[in-house]
Simulated scan of single mutants.
Amino acid sequence: MEKPLEYLVRKPKVSVENPPLLLLLHGVGSNEEDLFSLTNYLPESLLIVSVRGPLTLGKKSFGWYEVLFTTGQPKINLEQERESQKLLLQFLDYLKLNYNFDESNVWIGGFSQGAIMSYSIGLLHPEKVKGIIALSGRLLEENKAQVTVSEKVLSKKVFISHGTNDRVLSVDYARSVKGYLESIGVHPHYQEYEEGHSINREMLKDLIQWLEVQLGNQS
C-alpha cells in the first residue's frame, strides 16, 4: 500500500508490545514538524505520528482544506475536507500495515484546522478512534449534522482547550462544541485559558496530565 500522507513518527520511549497510537494534525499553513516538537513532553508509552496535510499552500506550508473569506465569513471547501477525512482513514490503514499498535487505543488530536479534522474523524468515524484532542478548534456545522449518536460516539474521551483571547477562532466555537457534546451525552474535559490562538505551557501541562490519566485508566 502506498503512503497516503507524509508524516513524522516518534516510537514509544518505553518497551510496549502494542502501544496506544496518537495522531497529531497541524493547523493551516503549518506542517508535520509543528506539533512534532511537542512529542518530547507527551507520555512515553505512545506511538506518536505527526501527519502533513495533503494540500500544498506554499513552501513548508500545508493544510487540510481551503478557507475562503470572500463573504466576510469563513467558507470552507467541504469537498477538500471530505477528501482529507478519506486520506486520514487510508493513512490509519497504512499505519496498521507498517507499525504495531493497539487498534482499540487510537487517539487523534490537533491544533486549529487539525482540531477541526480531529472532530470530523472522531465523531463521523467513531469506530476508528478512542479519543479526540481539540486545541483551539471547532466542529463544522456541516459535520455536526452528519453525526449519528451511537454507543461509539458516547464513549469518546474528549479534551478541549481554547484561548479566551483567540482572534482566529473565537472561544465561542469551543463553548458551542462543549454544549453540543454535553447535549448528546459526551462530557469533555474542557478548559479555557487567557491565551490567543496558540498552545501555551499550561495547556500542554493539562493535556499531558489528562492523557496520562486516560492511558493509565486502561492498564
Results as ranks from 00 to 15, higher is better:
81 E>F: 04
78 L>S: 09
85 Q>F: 05
183 S>C: 07
219 S>A: 11
107 W>Y: 15
125 H>C: 12
25 L>R: 00
14 V>R: 11
33 E>G: 12
27 G>P: 05
47 L>I: 14
217 N>H: 09
52 R>V: 02
165 N>W: 12
213 V>M: 11
27 G>C: 01
214 Q>H: 05
184 I>R: 08
124 L>C: 11
79 E>C: 06
64 W>Y: 10
83 E>G: 05
125 H>R: 15
174 A>V: 09
77 N>G: 02
188 P>M: 08
162 H>S: 09
34 D>R: 01
141 E>N: 13
122 G>C: 07
22 L>P: 02
126 P>M: 06
155 S>V: 08
117 M>K: 04
183 S>V: 07
131 G>N: 02
53 G>K: 04
105 N>R: 12
57 L>H: 03
43 P>M: 10
40 N>P: 11
22 L>T: 04
48 I>V: 15
30 S>K: 02
93 D>M: 08
29 G>W: 00
66 E>D: 15
24 L>V: 04
180 Y>P: 05
215 L>Q: 10
97 L>V: 10
50 S>P: 04
141 E>K: 14
25 L>Q: 01
140 L>M: 15
41 Y>S: 15
29 G>E: 01
95 L>W: 04
190 Y>W: 13
215 L>E: 07
77 N>Y: 01
171 V>Y: 08
53 G>M: 03
159 F>Q: 01
210 W>H: 08
204 L>H: 05
149 V>L: 13
14 V>N: 05
160 I>R: 02
82 R>L: 11
218 Q>T: 12
88 L>Q: 00
209 Q>P: 03
120 S>R: 07
205 K>C: 07
35 L>T: 01
